[in-house]
């Protein structure tokens, strides 16, 4: 998996060049990505913005090693992800990536603590599950099952689960998509805190422009391509966001 990364910034964590992805759904071909060039740096909070079907989730899945591109190359530090075997991708995810999904995707039969423990058990140098849950403000809900938690709480458990293994990258796919704005802000605050305190590269997908204010960089996707990349001169704290 070792490979030379194309020339990029020294802090670059992800470098993607000419990424394409084509899905075949029955007899129909759907082009989800049409040549993406992208560099993501250490410690950044990046917001991927775009309407439904613009390829945000596909890009995130490819960066996270959940999916393979149809064309182009992706590097994580000095590892080439494209062409890596399934076992290598599994190891990559296990060691370096944390995911947060729109619908939390907690395991309903495990408590909050156990959901986090499911990940820390297989990680190299994780936090304690309790510590991770305290980080997201759920120190008092350790033994609750997902069904006993509100949506916001469930999402915070999902974040705790993602950060508990101290990943280098945190990939969040519409983490506030299923939440009302007040709860959404709480979740974003947690993400902001994680990004700030742990220095984790955080990539946040949303189609909610209001959230873009908290990012270092906002990458706008449209129809499988990058429409523009904007750097926020002044980041807004999450608690000031509203939509």
């Amino acid at each position: 998996m070792m490979a030379r990364m194309p020339e990029a910034h020294a802090d670059a964590v992800f470098v993607a060049r000419g990424l394409t992805k084509i899905y075949r759904m029955g007899e129909v071909e759907v082009q989800a990505l049409r040549g993406i060039d992208l560099t993501l740096n250490r410690g950044e909070l990046v917001v991927l913005l775009g309407p439904s079907g613009s390829g945000k989730s596909t890009l995130l899945n490819i960066l996270g090693g959940l999916d393979a591109p149809s064309g182009g190359e992706v590097y994580y530090l000095d590892h080439k992800l494209t062409g890596a075997s399934e076992a290598e991708l599994t190891r990559f995810r296990r060691e370096h990536v944390g995911f947060v999904f729109q619908f939390y995707n907690l395991i309903p039969s495990l408590t909050a603590r156990e959901n986090v423990a499911a990940v820390t058990e297989i990680a190299a140098s994780p936090m304690r599950p309790e510590e991770a849950l305290r980080l997201v403000g759920l120190g008092n809900r350790l033994d609750h099952f997902p069904a006993q938690l509100s949506g916001g709480e469930q999402q915070r458990v999902a974040i705790a689960r993602a950060v508990a293994k101290n990943p280098a990258v945190l990939l969040c796919d519409e983490p506030t998509g299923a939440l009302d704005s007040a709860t959404g802000v709480v979740v974003l605050e947690v993400l902001e805190k994680v990004n700030r305190e742990l220095g984790t590269l955080t990539v946040l997908i949303t189609h909610n422009v209001g959230i873009a204010g908290m990012a270092d960089r906002v990458i706008r996707l449209s129809d499988g391509q990058i429409a523009d990349i904007r750097e926020n001169a002044e980041k807004k704290p999450a608690h000031e966001l509203a939509w």
């Binding site: 399934e86 296990r94 995911f99």
Partner: peptide, 13 residues
Amino acid sequence: EQIAILKAFGYSY
């Protein structure tokens, strides 16, 4: 989804 999430977090096949 649970299987997918476990894999996403690095559980081996």
